[in-house]
Design a protein around this nucleic acid. Structure first.
Length: 643
DNA sequence: CTAGGGTTAG
């Protein structure tokens, strides 16, 4: 039953209202008459619900200020249901919101992930201003809908309405959607608009611009913009540092970080996360520790992102126990924290720990495993000698369709698992039955298995398949020729060498480095650049002689060039990881473990050399190659000779 | 009312 109440009017826009007594029962009489400042005071006391009841009580009578107050609060609290009620109220009472309020609605819907509703509000607007356009573009951009953001931007440029010229907000936003292969082209066009409108030196636009160039690989252009910016702040500095780091230009990133610190930059957690990425790439443990100390001294609150990158940095620098310490100390973990830790164990070949941690993750049930998690777990099982457990987990993954659907990479892991277990034929059958066209990486992993298990028959088939898809990859020729050599099929070794001559492409020269007192010493194959080169190569020759006495036989099939055996041996001794090992032996004191990092996968001969190194020299060796860590102790490697 | 940099995997 409805009851009519007349309330006193003191607000010019407020008229008589009828309301439902069921609602009013909750209201104290003293709260009347409702007015915008009363709504405001309710909102500021966190009493949004009561404010909404007030709104309902006002029936047909709400005007700008009241709606503005309520929408503001809904946006702040990300309260979508309440926001919808406010919106519905506008419609029901035939209130026609001005551009400003409609824009608030767009913002509300987009912050609550209701992009369709936000777009509908924009579509219904007959008048739009730059803010309404920008809010919608930003909604798409922030959620990764790049093409929608860009299309909307173009639509905005074509729009005839007044007040639709993009401003600095629009440019800063839309540039973040210029990603991917065509991103840079679009970005350049937008850049020219920016120059025309004189926004190039704006600090937000500038950092967005330089980030766009950096992310599309045009780091010099990015750096030019950075240098030209009339003022810098922590975001623009971080953007350029992370630009270098993301492209793998780790040393440049580190150099810039140090230089900017010297110039007075106050790093924040994003800056640290970015520079830690660079240090992960360099595997520079001492430098990483130093940055960690900076972090601790700066007394930042704990940020999950930063802790995640610390976990990653320590594990990639060979300090896995520190990773675990950080992981255990976290009071909040994201899926990335778990993944980083799992990947750490996986790269160190610690299969048992991978399985244990994965079990813990499922038991805790706070964070749902994603496709990266499964990748880490499967490859961890493979590298850690837990083949059956890995196959079991893959089957679970394929059966329990509720979670992650296996992707190509997961199938690749299974090929790896089967291959490692010596089930090479089964792996081949598995590839044939996959719902994907096998990639070069998948054939490559099977070829590696064939080499380790000396399965020439399957290896030959796989190898030739691989040479068809990837004729430019030198590694494939090496492994196939290794395989033929191990079976004594010298004629076929010769054929492979002939094939190679025409197509052989060196993608990336081999390079190894070692960190001593926060300084990285880098060696290239047959290096002539290091100041102590003579001493180092003499040491390698010396070691080779010693190791031969202990049973070392140089594996000449690892050499690609068509030269005589003596030359081949000389080339082998010039491999960068041998130089780095020898340098480590010279430059560190007895008994100290030696950590070497290599940018490519380690070759069979160097792997063997390192084994003898650990045994004969009595030094523990940790060697990180492109795929994983190898830990050599007493002549045995943690990878079990399978990598 | 609208804006820029970040962590795992490949």
């Amino acid at each position: 039953m409805l009851r009519k109440i007349t309330i006193s009017i003191y607000h010019p826009n407020l008229v008589y209202s009828s309301f439902n007594p069921l609602i009013t029962r909750q209201l104290s009489v003293s709260s009347f008459p409702p007015n915008p400042s009363y709504l405001k005071s309710l909102c500021s006391n966190g009493r949004l619900r009561e404010a909404l009841v007030e709104m309902a009580a006002q029936g047909i009578a709400m005007m700008f200020e009241g709606y503005d107050t309520l929408l503001n609060e809904c946006v702040n609290q990300r309260a979508i249901r309440e926001g919808q009620r406010v919106h519905a109220h506008m419609i029901k009472t035939c209130y026609l919101p001005p551009v400003y309020l409609r824009t608030r609605l767009i913002v509300l819907y987009s912050k609550c992930d209701c992009l369709g509703d936000a777009q509908r509000v924009l579509d219904e607007m007959t008048l739009r201003n730059v803010v309404s356009w920008t809010a919608m573009i930003s909604a798409y951009a922030q959620r990764g809908y790049s093409s929608e953001a860009l299309n909307l931007f173009v639509k905005m440029l074509r729009s005839d309405f007044a007040g639709t010229e993009p401003n600095e907000f629009t440019f800063a936003t839309v540039l973040t959607s210029c990603t991917g292969p065509s991103g840079c082209n679009l970005g350049r066009q937008i850049h020219s608009l920016i120059i025309k409108r004189n926004f190039e030196s704006h600090i937000y636009v500038g950092s967005s611009l330089l980030d766009m160039y950096a992310k599309s690989g045009r780091i010099h252009e990015a750096h030019r913009i950075f240098k030209c910016m009339p003022e810098r702040d922590i975001v623009s500095c971080t953007a350029i540092i992370s630009g270098y780091a993301q492209l793998g230009l780790d040393e440049e990133a580190l150099k810039l970080f140090r230089q900017l610190l010297r110039e007075g930059m106050i790093a924040n957690y994003v800056t640290y996360a970015s520079v830690l990425t660079a240090l992960s790439g360099l595997a520079a443990l001492d430098l990483g520790r130093q940055v960690h100390n900076h972090v601790l001294r700066s007394q930042l609150p704990s940020y999950v992102v930063l802790q995640n990158s610390l976990i990653d940095m320590y594990s990639k620098c060979g300090g896995l126990c520190y990773s675990r310490r950080i992981f255990d100390s976290m009071n909040e973990r994201t899926v990335i924290s778990w993944n980083a830790m799992l990947v750490g164990y996986s790269k160190h070949g610690m299969g048992r720990e991978v399985v244990e941690l994965f079990k813990l993750m499922r038991e805790e049930n706070q964070v749902k495993p994603d496709s990266v998690t499964f990748l880490a777990v499967l490859s961890g099982c493979s590298h850690g000698g837990m083949e059956n457990k890995g196959l079991e987990i893959f089957d679970e993954m394929a059966i329990t369709r509720d979670g992650e659907e296996p992707e190509m990479e997961h199938y690749g892991c299974v090929v790896d698992l089967l291959g490692r277990a010596g089930r090479v034929e089964e792996a081949l059958e598995f590839i044939k039955k996959m719902p994907f066209e096998p990639t070069a990486a998948i054939w490559g992993s099977l070829l590696g298995a064939c080499r380790v298990h000396s399965n020439v028959e399957v290896g030959e088939f796989v190898g030739h398949r691989l040479l068809e898809i990837e004729p430019e990859n030198a590694g494939n020729y090496v492994i196939l020729s290794n395989l033929y050599a191990s079976a004594g099929r010298w004629e076929d070794v010769g054929t492979i060498r002939e094939l190679m001559k025409e197509k052989f492409v060196i993608k990336e020269p081999g390079r190894s480095w070692i960190e001593l007192d926060q300084i990285l010493h880098t060696f290239h194959a047959s290096d002539r650049s290091h100041p102590r080169r003579e001493e180092v190569s003499a040491k390698v020759r010396d070691l080779s002689v010693k190791f031969k006495e202990a049973g070392y036989v140089p594996d000449l099939s690892c050499v690609l060039y068509d030269v005589d055996e003596e030359q081949k041996e000389k080339i082998l001794l010039g491999h960068s990881e041998k130089l780095a090992l020898a340098f480590g032996l010279i430059a560190t004191s007895e008994g100290v473990p030696i950590r070497v990092i290599k940018n490519l996968r380690i070759c069979v001969d160097c792997h063997n050399f390192a084994k003898f190194f650990s045994k004969v020299c009595g030094r523990e060796v940790s060697l990180r190659d492109k795929n994983r860590f190898h830990r050599f102790v007493g002549g045995i490697c943690s990878c079990g000779d399978y990598w």
